[in-house]
Each structure stands twice: as C-alpha cells, then as structure tokens.
C-alpha cells in the first residue's frame, strides 16, 4: 500500500481543527501553549459551540492567543482575566466563557481576581498554564518557580527565605467552595495530552451545570526560559516540576479527590527533590 493509497478523506484520523485560525503561533518551538490552544479549539469544535463562546486572553506569552482562535476574544489587563470572565458570564449567562492565563498573570499579579472569581463560584472555565517562569519578559522568577531554580531574577537559585516559597495556587483554589472541578494536567506525552483534553472537555461541559468554577492547570515547559531544548525541558519538568506539582484531579463534581486530601496533609514537610535543585 503506497502513501497515496492511504492519504484519502475516508482514512483521515487527525486534522487541524478549523476553530484554530491559519496564523502561525508566535510561541517558541515545543511550547506547551500551542498544544493547549489546540486542545481547547478541538473541544470547542467537538461541542459545537464555536458561535457561542468568548475567550479571555491574559498578559504574558499568550497575550496574542486571540489571533489563533476563530472565536470572539477579549484581551484582559495583566492578571484581570478572571474579573473579565466573571463579568461576561454574568452579563451573557448562555455563552460559554473561558479565561486563559499563565502563572505570572494568574498566581502573581492576578492572585486577588482568581481567588475571588473562584470564591464566588463563577460559572466559567479557567485554563492555567504553569511553567514556573515569566516567559515573555525574558525568564524572570514567578510565584511558581521551584525552590533552587535559576531564573534571571533568581540567578543563584530561588531562595525561599528571601524570595518566598513555590506557590501551589491550584491547591489553594481547590479549597474554595466556589470551585467545582479542579485538576492538574500536562501535555508533553500523547497519553497526557489525550487525558488533558478530556479534562478541558469536562471543564467546558460543566458550564451547563451552573455549579461553579472549573479550573484546569496545565503544568508546562518553557524551554527558552529554562535554557533547554524542548525535549530536555519536558524531561526536566517530569523529573522536577511534577514532584512538587503532581498531576491529577483535586476536586471533581465539587468533591475532593481522596489522594488530594492525603497530599495536602504532607504540605508542611520539606520537599527533598526541590531542595536538591539548589546550588551549593
């Protein structure tokens, strides 16, 4: 069977979704943003909601996300996407609304807005890309930067005594009564990407239930900021980031996952893996 025999419409199994525009994304090669954009667009296509959805883009690497989706989009001020999404959902309750933010936007400057949107139980979907660094501005420390990790504003490694601790904001949000679904996913292997898509699908489907925030963190890479190749960055993330930010559901259908409760009980203990990142 030749290549030409195989490439026929009836044999098509995977095609770029039309919910994405033709624009080439400006992201660095191998960046997780592109995968998550594609997954969101596929979910929108599969749910048939392309003509009834509004996205909110942040300030950060994904500031131009609106150029890549063929749906209505509003670009928020730095950190304020959850406030924007709250207002739009309340004013247009029949429309699907999602916010898309990075860790600097959501966990640092926008910490207040995300907390309160989650606490109010806004009926929205929040996508949170956590790569532990400020990518767009050139690799500065974020609240989610691992202890000991080198960035341009923590060039000798993040010292929690001076620079604060690595922030598990998703774990904090899971504890607010307004969140209905909280999960941490990743997209660096085919299996994880497929799982992440299921999670994002559920986070959108939940808006039909009117039960509160559906929050999907995607732990991702920043090969430029981390100064690694894309493949090295994914490996580094698996070996380091995911020790401190383990994947899995924290809250499903408004109920804590038992493993999450077990894990929270260990939060007062030092994380050896993280300490090993520190330079002597």
């Amino acid at each position: 069977m030749t290549r030409e025999d195989i490439i026929k419409p009836e044999n098509l199994v995977y095609k770029r979704t039309p919910v994405l525009t033709d624009a080439t994304m400006h992201y660095c090669p191998g960046c997780g943003h592109g995968v998550v954009h594609r997954i969101i667009a596929e979910v929108i296509e599969e749910m048939g909601i392309q003509d009834n959805v509004i996205g909110i883009s942040p300030v950060g690497c994904s500031v131009l996300a609106y150029n890549y989706f063929d749906i209505d989009f509003v670009e928020a001020a730095h950190g304020r996407a959850p406030a924007c999404a709250s207002a739009i959902k309340r004013l247009r309750p029949d429309t699907f609304v999602f916010s898309y933010q990075g860790d600097g936007d959501l966990a640092s400057i926008g910490c207040g807005e995300v907390m309160h949107a989650c606490n109010r139980g806004e009926n929205i979907t929040m996508i949170f890309i956590n790569n532990g660094i400020y990518g767009m501005t050139g690799g500065q420390m974020a609240p989610t930067t691992l202890e000991g990790m080198e960035t341009v504003t923590s060039p000798y490694g993040r010292d929690p005594k001076i620079m604060g601790h690595t922030m598990r904001i998703t774990e904090a949000l899971a504890q607010l009564p307004g969140t209905y679904y909280v999960t941490r996913q990743a997209v660096y292997t085919p299996a994880l990407a497929r799982k992440c898509k299921k999670a994002i699908r559920m986070a959108f489907e939940n808006q039909k239930l009117n039960k509160g925030v559906s929050f999907v963190e995607v732990t991702s890479n920043c090969n430029s900021g981390w100064k690694m190749t894309p493949v090295q960055a994914n490996k580094w993330m698996e070996e380091n980031t995911l020790k401190y930010f383990p994947l899995g559901d924290m809250k499903v259908d408004g109920k804590f996952d038992p493993k999450f409760i077990e894990r929270v009980a260990t939060f007062d203990q030092p994380n050896e893996t993280i300490f090993s990142l520190r330079k002597k």
Binding site: I54, A77, C84, M115
Partner: peptide
C-alpha cells in the same frame, strides 16, 4: 449588580462587559 473584590476588579469587569 456585583460587589467586586476591589476597584481593580470592578473596572476590569466594566472593561469586559463593555467588550461584550
């Protein structure tokens, strides 16, 4: 009608509402 968490949130809610 929504009592926001701050004036920052308020004005950005207004921004988004107007955008819609």
């Amino acid at each position: 009608v929504l009592q926001a968490e701050s004036e920052l949130a308020s004005i950005n809610m207004v921004y988004a509402g107007a955008a819609a």
